[in-house]
């Protein structure tokens, strides 16, 4: 809960790079979010099937082993609970913005990103209670 009593927004981070995953988790926690991290799409789907609190935002790497970000996104949208959950694609793919364009509830950020810009984007997609 925030100081005002409102629940902290939850962000699910799906990222195969351990360093990025761990540091993003810590950065978002420091910023007042609840951050949950998964190393790949399958683990994230398992989490989403059973989680008590649905995430307010999903940060999704595109190029991952086991299941690509886009494959995960397709699976995610099959579940009505997550039909409109905002997704932020975060990828080294130079065409990530084009890939996000035209997909509802999806935004994109290219790696390497500036963390301040990341936080600003996250703040727009997932405002913290004040």
């Amino acid at each position: 809960m925030t100081a005002g009593g409102a629940p902290r927004p939850t962000i699910l981070i799906i990222e195969d790079d351990e360093t990025i995953r761990e540091t993003l988790t810590q950065i978002l926690e420091d910023e007042g979010y609840v951050a949950v991290a998964a190393a790949d799409g399958r683990l994230a789907l398992s989490y989403l099937e059973t989680c008590e609190t649905a995430p307010n935002l999903i940060m999704l790497d595109l190029m991952m082993p086991t299941m690509s970000g886009l494959e995960f996104h397709a699976e995610l949208r099959r579940d009505a609970r997550y039909g409109t959950t905002p997704v932020l694609l975060v990828s080294a793919d130079a065409t990530v913005s084009e890939k996000a364009r035209g997909i509802a509830h999806v935004a994109a950020l290219k790696k390497p990103f500036d963390v301040d810009m990341l936080l600003a984007t996250v703040g727009k997609l997932c405002p913290r209670a004040t």
Binding site: D17, T19, I20, T23, L24, Q26, I27, D30, M63, A92, D93, K111, P112, F113, D114, V115
Partner: peptide, 21 residues
Amino acid sequence: LRHDLLSHLTGIGTVTYLLRK
């Protein structure tokens, strides 16, 4: 290789952000 390099640069960015903070 390109993907790896960009991922490493991202990692460097997030780590230095945390340290600076």
